[in-house]
Design a protein around this nucleic acid. Structure first.
Lengths: 366, 366
DNA sequence: CTGAAAGCGCTTACAG
DNA sequence: CTGAAAGCGCTTACAG
């Protein structure tokens, strides 16, 4: 190893680190001048600023985040607390993609994302409180929004810049970004109705989450508007729930001719049940998913899905959070507003065909 | 909002924060004594320590990470740089699960994970250098190990505690954790050979990565030991590559009777091609995957897979990294060693059956 | 076991 | 535009 073997200061780092004092000495100015110069603030002449910058580069100076934070500057970190077990997060395609999108934007702005996994909503709120007291983060991003979520009043009280992912509604006075699930629902229902389906079922995920609830409502009301018979089958989350739910739907006398699943994982699981039962997709049953992914694309037939890219969702959330954090320093601005992501429908073969006429084994003809 | 509207110190936080000076004053000791007490270090009597702790709790004191870091204490953060676009990361099931496993362990130890996405290996190395200079992290975790990886010598030089995920070999003098891919390969090949397969193909991912290369080698040599004809079909990563590769294999005169895929995503894509071509799994072709997931389990038939849980891999890596970081403070210990994760084989229906006798359309009979 | 002090590397008023 | 200083909240020697 090329590193010096003599004992170095605690932690790490080879030799003494370069500080603004070193730069100041070389430049023949005070460290305050250096601070102003490197932070692009007025107070030094252009000539001195240039000289200082050159020396900083030459000395390979890097600012100390700790010193900056201690002196009151932003810590350039945002936090996200997850009150779900690693097992659940790890198996959900949405999580990885969302985080990747967040990271991409945050990294570009020299921000980092601090994540923490806890096991209850109370622990989540306690973490926000602690992060604020420690000045560990400049803001937080709140996910998995629920109806009447206790985190919202807690955060409103805390004066910690926060962005809620989810809505509309139920995010109190906090800024939010969300995908318009009602619109997505209408896209799906309209598409299936157009294809001639008159009995459409929704295989619904965990209804604790607000967006699931919003889909339920939009689904029922849109079906009714179109004179279509809506069925909502609760499935909890995950593949297994979707299998059971699909089987239950198939067993009905008036079995639906089209199924909409809340996630790509659920859709796949449902498809397998359909195939096993001998149904063909889309000839016997049409299938669509609220979540697009490599899986929906790869499946045979490829599955019609809502093009809400989780990566893009992450990017939008990160950009919005950075705005919110920046606004927190400024005089109270108009940062409360929500931002909506408009979903699109990607039509694929799984809904390519009209349902075959029902050969009278019960159920109301449309 | 209940928060005070009067101007508060820059950043955030309501009112003046509680410091060890406040505790010291209340307890009638110096702040040094408080520091010793709250950090569980000797130097204060048990009685004073207890009194100090009580007051700290009462005042809801939280240590300032910035002040601690500036004073030389560990920053309680580890870093991970990813030199892959968010798009790729986001669609890979492994990433989310691995991160979830890392986070679970790190969170429990009050460590946080700092991630950064860059677009080249050079940028990755530059990031390590910068993080070290800034004292931003206590250590880093290196993923996506390649043959003769330039990051290894760079990190050996940098005296930044680092854990390599990958191996064996090619991690230089750095500690490493890895899944024994050679062993996994033998498990798969042996299983298929036992089932009577004599023409086995490996649909291989991106061979830039060391673990893919190690699988290739182990695959060929094990097949030869067992008198089985090995075929390695390069597919790059992702679903599309796997489809093309599978189709190519099926087109061969001596088409294999068993296919091993490098990931669950690839396996699913391959299965769809098989199904489209009219092949039945496992009657006509057996399928196995190096990566287990909800998808391999949900598929019909369920797919035989290596039980290398990405979440568990993340947990092991996190624990090992924490050891490495702790060892960096201590006199140079024996932290260079590698730690191996032993994979297991989960047999499912996709390999349930012996291949049907080859009705003489070419190829060498076994 | 306890006290008084220096120092970590910045930023931010406040004088000149 | 520039200088001298205080302060952020800790930890760590170093004396008593």
């Amino acid at each position: 190893m090329a590193a010096s073997t003599q004992s170095r200061p605690r932690g790490s780092g080879r030799g003494r680190r370069v500080t603004i004092a070193d730069i100041a000495e070389r430049a023949g100015v005070t460290s305050a001048a250096v601070s102003l110069a490197v932070n692009g603030r007025p107070g030094v002449s252009d000539a001195t600023r240039a000289r200082i910058m050159d020396i900083a580069r030459e000395l390979q100076w890097e600012p100390s985040p700790a010193a900056r934070a201690l002196a009151g500057a932003p810590v350039l970190t945002v936090g996200m607390v997850l009150a779900r077990p690693a097992e659940v997060l790890g198996t959900e395609a949405f999580f990885g993609a969302f985080v990747a999108g967040l990271q991409e934007v945050l990294s570009r702005h020299d921000y980092s994302l601090q994540m923490k996994i806890v096991d209850s909503t109370e622990a989540e709120i306690a973490t926000y409180r602690r992060w604020l007291a420690q000045r560990r983060v400049d803001g937080v991003i709140v996910v998995d929004l629920r109806q009447d979520d206790p985190r919202i009043p807690a955060l409103e009280d805390l004066a910690l810049p926060a962005l809620v992912v989810g809505g509309p509604g139920h995010h109190g006075s906090l800024p939010s970004v969300y995908v318009d699930d009602a619109h997505a629902t209408r896209l799906l229902v309209d598409h299936l109705a157009e294809r001639g389906h008159r009995r459409i079922a929704r295989v619904a995920g965990n209804e604790d989450f607000l967006h699931i609830l919003l889909r339920d409502r939009a689904f029922t009301s849109r079906c009714e508007e179109l004179g279509v018979a809506p069925v909502v089958q609760n499935a909890g989350f995950g593949a297994h729930g979707a299998e059971v739910a699909t089987a239950a739907l198939l067993a009905r006398e008036d079995a639906p001719t089209a199924l909409i699943f809340d996630s790509d994982e659920m859709a796949l699981a449902g498809c397998h049940v359909l195939e096993e039962s001998g149904r063909r997709i889309p000839q016997d049953v049409a299938v669509a998913s609220y979540e697009d992914s490599a899986l929906t694309l790869t499946h045979r037939p490829p599955i019609t899905a809502i093009g809400r890219s989780a990566i893009e969702y992450g990017r939008v959330a990160a950009n919005r959070l950075l705005e919110v954090v920046a606004a927190a320093d400024a005089p109270r601005g108009t940062s409360q507003e929500a931002r909506v992501i408009e979903p699109s429908l990607i039509v694929r073969d799984s809904t390519a065909q009209a349902p075959e006429p029902w050969s009278g084994r019960g159920g109301t003809p449309a």
